[in-house]
Simulated scan of single mutants.
Amino acid sequence: MADQSTTDNDTDGYRSGFVCFVGRPNAGKSTLTNALVGQKIAIASDKPQTTRHVVRGIITRPDGQLVLIDTPGLHRPRTLLGERLNDLVRDTWSEVDVVAVCLPADQRIGPGDTYLVEQLARLRNRPTLVALATKSDLVSGDRLRQHLVAIQGLEEKVGISWTHIIPVSARTGEQVQEVGDVLLGLLPYGPQYYPDDEFTDEPEEQLVAELIREAVLEGVRDELPHSIAVVVDEMRMRADRPEDRPLLDIYASMVVERDSQKGIVIGHKGERLRQVGTTARKQIAHLLGVPVYLDLKVKVMKDWQRDPKYLNRLGF
Rank of each mutant, 00 (worst) to 15 (best):
V101A: 14
D97T: 01
L88Y: 01
L66G: 04
T51F: 06
T114Q: 13
R126F: 10
L88Q: 14
D106K: 04
L123R: 10
R124I: 14
A44P: 01
T114L: 11
I41S: 03
L85I: 09
I69D: 00
L80A: 08
I41Y: 04
T114E: 15
V96L: 04
R84P: 06
V98Y: 09
I43L: 05
D87H: 13
I58R: 00
P62Y: 11
Q119P: 00
K47P: 05
I58S: 03
L123F: 08
R84N: 12
I69R: 00
V55F: 02
R84G: 08
V98K: 06
R56P: 03
H53W: 05
D46Y: 09
C102D: 00
E83T: 12
L88V: 02
R126V: 11
P48M: 11
L66S: 03
G73K: 14
L116P: 09
G57K: 03
H75P: 00
E83D: 13
Q119R: 15
A42D: 03
Y115Q: 13
R78V: 06
D106A: 05
L74R: 08
D70K: 03
D113P: 08
P104D: 08
L103R: 02
L66F: 03
D63S: 10
P111N: 13
G73A: 13
R108S: 10
I43S: 05
R90D: 11
N125S: 14
R108K: 12
A105F: 04
P48R: 08
V67H: 00
E83R: 15
R90Y: 12
A100W: 06
L68M: 08
T71F: 04
A100L: 07
H53K: 11
L85P: 09
V96F: 05
R122W: 06
T51R: 04
E95W: 00
R52I: 07
G73C: 13
V117E: 07
I69F: 07
G110K: 07
T114V: 15
P127L: 07
G82C: 08
Q49R: 09
T92Y: 01
A42Q: 02
W93E: 05
V54E: 02
L81G: 02
P72L: 09
A105I: 06
D87L: 14
A105D: 05
A100S: 11
W93Y: 09
R61L: 12
Q65I: 02
R52C: 07
V117I: 15
C102V: 10
I109E: 04
Q107R: 13
D97Y: 07
T114N: 00
C102Y: 00
Q119D: 09
Y115C: 03
G73S: 12
V99M: 08
G64R: 04
T79R: 12
I59S: 02
D70T: 04
L85A: 09
N86L: 10
Q107T: 11
R76E: 15
R61V: 01
A44W: 00
E95A: 12
K47Q: 10
L85F: 10
R56C: 09
L116D: 06
L68G: 01
V54N: 14
R108D: 10
P104I: 05
H53G: 10
